[in-house]
Amino acid sequence: MSERLLDILLSSFPKLLLACLRATIPLTVIIFAVSLVLGFLLALVQIMDIKGLKRFARIYIWIFRGTPLLVQLYIIFFGLPSIGITLDAFPAAVIAFSLNNAAYNSETIRSAILSVPQGQTEAGYMVGLNYRQIMMRIVLPQAARVAFPTLSNSVISLTKDTSLVASITVVELFKTAQRIASVYFEPFALYCEAALIYLLLNTLLTFLQSYLEKKLVWKPVERTKHFTKAA
C-alpha cells in the first residue's frame, strides 16, 4: 500500500468514526425506538381486534412493506415540499425510516404475541387476572423472548440501511466516505474503510445481542430460596 493511501485512510478514519457517532448511531437509536413503539401499537390494535384501527394497521403495513424504502425516503424529503410540507433531511430520514421499520416490527411483535399459547391466557383468566394483567405479566414477557432475535436482526439491518440517507444529503458515515473519496479520487479504499466501520459497529451489536439473549432466558434454578425459608 502506498504511503499516500495509508495517510488518507488513517486521517479519514476519525472523520468516519465521528460521522458514525454523530449521525449513524443516533439515527439508528432514534429510528429503532420510534419504530418499536409504533410497531407495538400496530401489533396491539390487531391482536385486540379493534375494528377500525385493525383495518388501518393492515393497510399501513401493506403500503410500507410493499414499497421501497428509498422511494419512501424520496417521497418524504423531495416530494412533500411540493404540497407545502418541507422537512430538514435528518427529521425526514427519521420519519421515513421509522414508518417503514414500524411496519416490519409490528409483524414481528404480532407473531411473537400470537406464538404464546392460548392456554397461557386462559390460565390467567382462571386465576382471576384481567386482560391487561395477563398481557403485562404473562403474554408480553414470553413474547419478548420470541421477538428478540428478530428485532435484533432488524437493528443490524437498520444500521446498514441508514447509509441510504446519504442520498438525501444527511452527512452520516457513508456520505462522509463519499465526500472524502471524491476529494482524493480513492473510492475503493474509502468505501472499504466505511464498510469496515459498519462491520465493527455490527460486531458490537452482535455481542450485545447474545449478552441480552442470555439475560432474557428465564433464569435456571437457583436452589432454593423459598424451600429453605419454609423449612
Partner: peptide, 23 residues
Amino acid sequence: FQNYNLFRNKTAFQNVMEGLRIA
C-alpha cells in the same frame, strides 16, 4: 387444564403466587 398451562415465564412458586397476589 389437560396440558397444565403453567405460566412458562414464572417458577412453580410464582405460578401459585400470581392469582393470590395480583387477583
